[in-house]
Design a protein around this nucleic acid. Structure first.
Lengths: 340, 340
DNA sequence: GGTTTATTTGCAATCGTTTGCATTATAGGG
DNA sequence: CCCTATAATGCAAACGATTGCAAATAAACC
């Protein structure tokens, strides 16, 4: 109902007895317009509760001030849209984007039929795209990159790619995690995660490097492949123990959710953490320290990651080229690894 | 770079040797256009990878196909944007909205200077608004409602309001939770949460009703006021026990996060759950069953809540009036309450 | 006071779709 | 073969803000 006679720039102009161009400029605080006029018009706009039609200005300026954030989930696995870590990243991005005057359009990868650049950029729904997660296949991402659309992806920055990816040093993080277990005298360390997943494969490498660095032999039987969900981790750990008994004394989990799932399975079998099995996670989600025992984990700094991602995107808006950047990780020692 | 000579409707029309209106209609599968022409043009569009300029069509149709979802957080408390329950709702909403052809514009309440209707609707950034959380004050929400903008809020649907609110029956949920504790022979039940918060105050009522229903006396000393965060719950429980000892044998927590924070505090003091203290949460976030002991809690059905919310919003788009609706809750019994 | 220069404002085209109405092509009927 | 009814397409005016350029006003200088 209030939409019937929405006040437009032209309307305001008439009220003020000036031209639309003057009002337009005044509201943008353009110094071309005399200070007094600006003030007067701004006051008037406020009084009448005026708001610009953003659709019109988008059309004219060819700029949306929107960034599409795509949760790139693998269709098969159900690392659901409610994965706390992913959503934390979304939350942080939202904050940073807002600060720069951009809005966040949230999407999951199932929307927008494969051609993201086309759907979001060409159709001017957004000025740029941030993809969260490289998943198992980077096809869609590369398609966007090739289109030349502004793009930043959260993933593993150490592997070469034609676009800007920011993320943690996964290899190093996992190396440190594994080293930490070794220093705590774990000798039979299980890697739990999905080695085919981009970031996770880097973590896998770090795990292997830590072993060889300590002259321990890598044994493929100590790799437990599972999805990045607590549910799957829980089930896989259960199955393994059932089948082979407790043949490990340490777990490098590929994410906190995986770690938590594993811990649940262990606890149910009255396997003590950390004395029987020590475990270290990855991410440092809010829940990590609430668990009992509090989870030792590799912290990803999502706050600064978000800041960097937005920076890299803004660069591209200014036609500058963006790089991949590595954000620091730190091992947070809590209680799920025994004292060395 | 690819944006230089973006193909427009007019361009396509020229290529096909027809008018823009024909192309426009053909791409919308408008039966006014002969089937053959439609097919031909659609094929052409696909071939050239054409995509409509959405900004232009918004301007023309006065419709954005976007819904703004606002996380209504209280500024003072830091029930952060990463609260898992809230984000779960966002995720579910995203799914449902997408299914109906709408996109989700994510915002926190800090953006958009108080006047949401103006910022999102009048400026045609979105067609409607979904607010998640009533918070402590409903001022901003009422302002939106008064403006006549399509609006649905997630909150407590049982309290009267001039707008459509969907949510769980908080009073009942809390009643059931408390009853469950009583049946497990708890007699000194602590309510932990923020009684001033809209939904939480309903839960508080439920708690009280359960007590009186069982002829137990309500004692204000058994109300522990705290924010809806695990951190605050943890600290408050710690402080209370430190000050007054363990004077309770049951906890009704106002959310799972609160419950988890409380559990952490208890565990650190070697207070056994559930035998010393039984506890029941609210929400049923993914983490709830991972905890040890697995958390007994009141489940809110976010999936169908999201569906209903979107339904109610769509109704308003069609000028129909929307109602408040209560979504079912169910008590999920796990291990944090002792066997009765 | 006239001329130049700087400051303010206004004109009008433009962004790319959509859509009511007019127009043209096609079919149908006598 | 003409006339009417129907189907298919095209014309052109919106939608509302932005902006290069022109115009008008004010200031400055000799």
């Amino acid at each position: 109902m209030s939409n019937e006679n929405k006040l437009t720039l032209a309307g305001l102009a008439k009220l003020a007895g000036v031209s639309t161009s003057t009002v337009s400029r005044a509201l943008k605080d353009n110094p071309l317009i005399k200070k007094e006029t600006r003030d007067r018009l701004q006051a008037l706009a406020a009084e009448y509760n005026f708001s610009l039609n953003h659709a019109a200005s988008r059309l004219r300026t060819q700029k949306t001030n929107v960034v599409a954030v795509i949760l790139n989930l693998d269709d098969e696995t159900d690392q659901s849209i409610s994965d706390p870590f992913l959503l934390k990243v979304v939350g942080d991005l939202n904050q940073v984007l807002n600060k720069h005057g951009y809005e966040l359009l949230l999407s999951n990868s199932l929307m927008a039929n494969d051609d993201w650049a086309n759907y979001y950029i060409s159709s001017s729904r957004a000025d740029g795209i941030i993809v969260i997660g490289q998943g198992k296949s980077t096809q869609k991402i590369e398609k966007v990159a090739k289109s030349g659309a502004p793009l930043v992806v959260w993933g593993d920055p150490t592997t070469a790619s034609g676009y800007s990816v920011v993320g943690s040093n996964n290899e190093l993080g996992s190396f440190l995690a594994t080293k930490h277990l070794i220093e705590a005298n774990c000798r039979n360390i299980l890697f739990v995660g999905d080695p085919e997943h981009a970031e996770m494969s880097e973590r896998y490498k770090g795990y292997k490097r830590a072993l060889s660095d300590s002259s321990l032999e890598f044994n493929p039987n100590f790799t437990l492949s599972c999805d990045i969900t607590s549910k799957d981790a829980y089930e896989k750990i259960n199955d393994t123990i059932l089948a082979k008994g407790l043949f490990f004394d340490g777990i490098v989990a590929t994410s906190d959710m995986v770690a938590l799932g594993a811990m649940k399975a262990l606890k149910e079998r009255y396997i003590n953490i950390p004395s029987d099995v020590s475990i270290v996670g990855f991410d440092d989600i809010a829940m990590a320290e609430l668990f009992h025992p509090a989870l030792t984990t590799v912290q990803q700094d999502t706050k600064s990651a978000a800041t960097i991602m937005v920076e890299q995107l803004l660069k591209q808006f200014k036609q500058q080229s963006a790089d991949s950047v590595v954000v620091d990780i730190t091992l947070i020692e809590r209680k799920s690894v025994r004292e060395s």
